[in-house]
Structure formats: C-alpha cells, structure tokens
C-alpha cells in the first residue's frame, strides 16, 4: 500500500469514527444514568433520517440545518417518551429484562409506524456535497467531512455541558454512584427525563446526519446499533471522550482490517472485538487505561 492510499484510508476511518461517536453517545448516557439498554435507539435514528428527509423534500431545507433542527425536536420527543413509557419502569442499578423488552417493543412500533407512513422504499437525500475535496493526491469526501465536523462539534458541546453545568454534574454523579448522588440532592427522575431527552436528541441527530451519507428505510439503524454496543464496551460509560475513543478504535479496525480479511467478514470484526474486549478487559479499554494511569 502506498503512503497516499494509507492516508486516504486513515481519513475515511477518522470520518467514520466521528459518525460512530455521534451514534453511540446518546445510548451511552441513557445507559449510564438509567441502566436502560435503549434498543429503540435505532428507531429514533430512523425517525431522525426521515425527519431530515421530509424537511429537505417539502421545505427544501439544507440537510445540515435539518440535522441541527432535529436536536431540539428529538429532545422534546425523548422527554415525551420518557414521560409516557420509561418513567414507569422499576428502578434498578442493573439493566432489567422489563426495560429491554419495553424498548425492543417500542422499536418495533416505531419501525412499523415507519412502514405505514413511508413504505419500504429506500430513500436518500441528494446533498450538495457529492464530490471530494482534493488535497493533492489525497481526497476527502466532502459530505463525510461536513458530517464529521457537525458530529464532533456537537460532541464537544455535550462534553462542555456535562462538565460545566449543574445538569451535567448531576448526570456524571448518577453514572458514578446513583445512591450517593440522590443523597446529595440530585433529582433522579428529573435528571433521567432530561438525559433520555438528550440521548434521543443525539439519536435523532445521528440519524439525520446519516441521511446525508446513506440511503434508509424503516429498518434503518440496526447495523449501527450493534456498533454502538461495541463502542460502549470499548470506550466505557463515563465520558464522551470514552465514546470518541471507542468509536475511533472500531472505525480504524474496521477500515484497515478489511485490507487483510475478505470484506464479507466485516461484521465479524466488530463482534470479534466485542468478545475479546469483554473477556480480556471487562471494564473496556478506556477503563483499563484509566486504571493504569491511576497506578502510575
């Protein structure tokens, strides 16, 4: 492989990592605070993609503006879903079967509502950023770059909120120790509702961004859900940085791994990685690095 080919692949992996991080972060914070494995995350992503598509089709809104608009809309939607369904779940500091079933059932409902409204045809958005940005022999896909910048900016804003606001500190406290957090005055119910709204907003945002890169139908989101699990396991549950780290590892391994094994085995890369990390580093690679850092 030439140096140019290597750099092109590295750029592809970085752009993919930004997208993966946007996909996984919403799921991570919901799991961290509520210990809910949000299988409906894929459904929210699908709705985000269609939300952007409809704005583009009917109002001719730029897909990037549509993606940004999806944040407040899906935040409110997520709060509504929490109020309607999630708040009735029995509280637990471990994932429960009832929460898993509820979110799975809700995903099926979203999917079938999608089929009723939009049918099963694949849809896509014809973005203005179709070509590449040439930097000498190196080529950068412009659509991927725009999506990457949007994803990384939103993740940075989220990181800022989690570190600098009362809400962010409440979220971090609940992730670290829910009992101690409540003793010092964190309102678990209110924080959970806001977190669920935030997680849903990021799912919708990720879906809206992906609509600029991929075609989609009501089944959209499933392959990304699996990757989100891998990223969570790799990066740990405590920070946006961990998610970004997990996303980067997965994207690098997937992109470069395909050079050495047949492309048909690409899913085996993520699943294989998941199994290896769970067996060798149960706290995730981020947890392992953190422990080593403390020991040092």
């Amino acid at each position: 492989m030439t140096a140019v080919e290597f750099i092109n692949l590295l750029i592809s992996a970085l752009l993919l990592a930004g997208l993966y991080a946007a996909v996984a972060v919403g799921m991570t914070i919901i799991y961290g605070v509520m210990k809910i494995v949000n299988l409906a995350h894929a459904g929210f992503m699908m709705l985000g993609a269609y939300f952007n598509y409809e704005l583009f089709e009917w109002l001719h809104l730029d897909p990037m503006a549509g993606a940004l608009l999806s944040l407040p809309v899906f935040f409110v939607f997520g709060m509504g879903v929490h109020w309607l369904l999630v708040r009735w779940l029995p509280k637990s500091d471990q994932p429960t079967l009832s929460s898993l079933l509820l979110m799975f059932g809700f995903w099926l409902v979203l999917q079938n509502v999608g089929y009723l409204i939009w049918g099963n045809s694949d849809r896509a958005i014809l973005t203005a950023h179709r070509r590449t940005l040439p930097l000498g022999p190196i080529t950068i896909p412009t659509a991927g770059l725009v999506v990457f910048i949007a994803a990384v900016t939103c993740l940075a804003v989220l990181q800022f909120i989690l570190h600098k606001s009362w809400f962010g500190r409440s979220v971090t406290a609940l992730i670290q120790n829910p009992y101690a957090a409540q003793i010092v005055g964190v309102d678990h119910q209110k924080t959970s509702q806001l977190t669920f709204g935030l997680g849903t907003a990021f799912a919708g945002f990720a879906g809206a961004l992906m609509a600029m890169l991929f075609s989609f139908n009501p089944d959209f989101g499933r392959p990304f859900l699996v990757r989100a699990f891998v990223i969570i396991v790799l990066g740990g549950l405590e920070s946006v940085t961990g998610v970004a780290f997990g996303a980067l590892i997965l994207a690098l391994i997937e992109t470069f791994g395909i050079l050495f094994i047949p492309a048909g085995y690409q899913p085996a890369i993520s699943f294989g990685l998941l199994v290896v990390v769970l067996l060798v580093f149960p706290t995730g690679i981020a947890g392992l690095l953190k422990r080593k850092w403390r020991l040092a």
């Binding site: 092109n8 592809s12 992996a13 993919l16 392959p223 395909i258 492309a263 048909g264 690409q266």
Partner: peptide, 20 residues
C-alpha cells in the same frame, strides 16, 4: 472477487482494495 456484508455502513476499505 470478494463478498461484502448486506447493509454495511461503510465500503471505503473494500473500495480501496478495488482501486488497488
């Protein structure tokens, strides 16, 4: 001559191999 997985989100690695 290679097979790829249905519904893959990214084909950049495969396309790089095809280019090569």
């Amino acid at each position: 001559n290679e097979k790829f997985d249905l519904g893959s989100p990214d084909f950049s690695g495969l396309l790089q191999k095809i280019k090569s």
